[in-house]
């Protein structure tokens, strides 16, 4: 049988870039992507105002108040809206049975996974810069370079968004839903970490959120602090683990 039948001209074998373009289109044409990005941008920018001007203080222990920049969890909160972008990109495959269409179009599971990963990486990088930059500039303009530096610097922040986005992406590809990864990633810092840190700060500081805070130079207290390079390595390890596991499982799944 000839590979290229009548009507549609054969333009050579299918390249990885064709598959990446298709994956980019999938993400771009999902309304959730844009809603989530708008939310993240708004949250990031709004949080930059109190962080920069020190107007808002959060009640701390012993009746003292603390500047919002000391509460990394609050400043990092928008990332949990942001990670919904890769989560929807992954979980969307399992809505309406799209993954079967995807695997018909790209039957080689390695290429399928690689193309999707590259598209997600590209989107995450560009989107992270776009949503983080306005808040960063606001802090710089209103609070000066010190405040901007205090929150880790632009490239560190973008890296943090990218890595947590990859953790979420791998997680969603593994469990094939949108809800579970988002719920778990939010519940970990909000509920699990406060309970766990009393019992074992050594373990708590290795959780993705806490390690990211260490990497950004704003750990929630000295007992949860890791050196910044160590924090970075821990988050990278989380991302590699989740994406790697998702890759391995995708190869063994049939559709």
């Amino acid at each position: 049988m000839t590979a290229a039948p009548t009507g549609v001209p054969d333009t050579g074998g299918i390249r990885l870039t064709d598959l990446v373009r298709a994956e980019l289109t999938k993400i771009r044409t999902l309304p959730a992507t844009w809603i989530v990005l708008a939310l993240t941008l708004a949250a990031d920018t709004l949080l930059a105002l109190p962080a920069a001007t020190d107007v808002v203080r959060i009640a701390g222990s012993g009746g003292r108040t603390a500047a919002i920049t000391q509460f990394g969890t609050v400043l990092l909160a928008p990332v949990y809206a942001f990670v919904a972008v890769p989560v929807f990109a992954a979980g969307g495959e399992y809505r309406g049975g799209q993954v079967r269409v995807s695997l018909l179009a790209a039957p080689d599971r390695n290429r399928f996974f690689l193309a999707k990963l590259l598209a997600v990486l590209g989107i995450l990088t560009v989107a992270a810069i776009l949503v983080v930059l306005p808040g960063h500039l606001t802090r710089r303009a209103l609070g000066g370079a010190d405040v901007a530096e205090a929150t880790g610097g632009l490239s560190a922040e973008v890296t943090a968004y990218l890595l947590l986005g990859l953790v979420a992406y791998g997680f969603a590809m593994l469990v094939r839903t949108v809800v579970t990864p988002l719920a778990v990633l939010v519940v970990l810092p909000v509920l699990v970490s406060p309970l766990l840190r009393g019992l074992s700060p050594e373990v708590t500081r290795l959780l993705p959120h806490e390690a990211t805070l260490s990497f950004l130079g704003m750990p929630e207290g000295p007992h949860l602090a890791l050196d910044r390079p160590v924090g970075l390595s821990v988050v990278v390890a989380w991302a590699v683990t989740f994406v790697g596991a998702a890759w391995a499982v995708t190869l063994r799944r049939d559709g």
């Binding site: 994956e23 049975g97 079967r100 018909l104």
Partner: peptide, 26 residues
């Protein structure tokens, strides 16, 4: 195929567009 279809939130034309791109169909 049964159970192989578009994400409900996508527009019909976008569903076909990504499929076409994936296999370099004009």
């Amino acid at each position: 195929l049964d159970g192989a279809g578009p994400v409900p939130e996508r527009r019909g034309v976008d569903h076909l567009a990504w499929i076409a791109q994936s296999n370099r169909i004009p």
